[in-house]
């Protein structure tokens, strides 16, 4: 049986939480533990027989109040590789439109006795609120502009596999910082592991007090990218480029879009990342997105591994485990 050939588990992870609601509250050791576990999951995922039995018999519900393709399918594949029964619920199209509240939806679902809820919601704090009302484990798959912990973990795993470390690296996060949960989770995680984090963007897309989160703030790409090891681009929503936050797409691309000329300010071996989905020609040029320094496709693979690691870590806390 294939499971007999599974690689030896890494040193036992001491993950002391029933939920994964954010990077905030995790210790550096817990983060590293999850990354180590994810390394093993990469190996599993690269085999022909990709199944483990950690979640056999368990029910995982992906509850997405906001449309998502890649995160939802990534969680679905991760759960299935660990043996769980996975169900997707796109709530945007069902109960909520009939007027049901978040709590009512949670209580209804809870009555069906799932073991793990993976939740994305457009409101910051909604996932935590929901976690108080259910008896299963909850994973935050993105809550408003607050946190997206598995994205930060997969970014860290991708970086660590290429640079061998996180500590001491200069990481520049560029673009719409104000509306980005990816930026916040990455800032927390990278700082926890000792990276030097910068944020770059127009002042209109820079949230107040961001420097208090331990980042250096830049409003000019050349200065912010100088000497960077990692360049993380963020998606800019269309509705923010019409003069409200940014005058136009062409102006945004001219000053903040990552093309080869701007990337040249970073270290020669700098690596480019993007959480997707990309707006080519808005925040990133195709030549860079598809270029030799791009890790964008690899991030997707690491996404599945990291979500397997998180599910596995939480499985230890499931009742009767």
């Amino acid at each position: 049986m294939a499971l007999m050939n599974a690689p030896p588990l890494p040193p036992a992870v001491t993950f002391g939480h029933r939920h994964l609601l954010g990077i905030e509250g995790l210790t550096a050791a817990e983060i590293v533990g999850l990354l180590d576990l994810a390394e093993a999951a990469v190996e599993v995922s690269r085999k022909i027989e990709k199944k483990k039995a950690v979640l056999r018999g368990r029910t995982q519900v992906n509850l997405f109040f906001e449309p998502s393709t890649r995160t939802q399918s990534s969680f679905e594949i991760a759960g299935k590789r660990l043996g769980a029964d996975v169900m997707n619920m796109a709530v945007a199209a069902s109960a909520v439109s009939k007027g049901e509240t978040l709590i009512d939806t949670a209580m209804t679902l809870n009555a069906m006795r799932p073991d793990i809820l993976v939740v994305r919601h457009h409101a910051a704090g909604a996932v935590e609120l929901l976690s108080h009302k259910v008896s299963c484990s909850v994973i935050n798959a993105g809550d408003g502009a607050h946190e997206h912990p598995t994205q930060a973990l997969l970014d860290a795993l991708t970086i660590r596999r290429h640079k061998g470390k996180i500590a001491g690296l200069v990481v520049a996060i560029c673009g719409d910082i104000a509306h980005s949960r990816v930026a916040r989770s990455n800032i927390l995680l990278l700082n926890a592991l000792g990276a030097r984090v910068r944020v770059i963007g127009p002042s209109t897309l820079m949230p107040a007090g961001i420097e208090r989160m331990g980042v250096a703030v830049f409003s000019e790409m050349a200065a912010g990218l100088a000497g960077a090891d990692i360049v993380m681009m963020l998606r800019l929503q269309r509705e923010r480029m019409d003069g409200s936050f940014v005058p136009s797409v062409r102006e945004y691309f001219h000053f903040f879009g990552l093309d080869e000329a701007k990337l040249a300010a970073a270290k020669p071996d700098a690596l480019v990342m993007h959480p997707g989905p990309m707006n080519r020609g808005v925040e990133i040029d195709s030549a860079v997105a598809d270029g030799a320094q791009s890790l964008i496709r690899e991030q997707v693979e690491m996404g599945v591994a990291v979500r397997m690691a998180v599910l596995e870590a939480l499985a230890a806390h499931l009742p009767n485990a």
Partner: peptide
């Protein structure tokens, strides 16, 4: 400062 002087969307100040 704003497109069409309409007081809404800002113009392409940088360009």
């Amino acid at each position: 400062l704003t497109k069409g002087l309409a007081g809404g969307a800002m113009t392409e100040l940088g360009l």
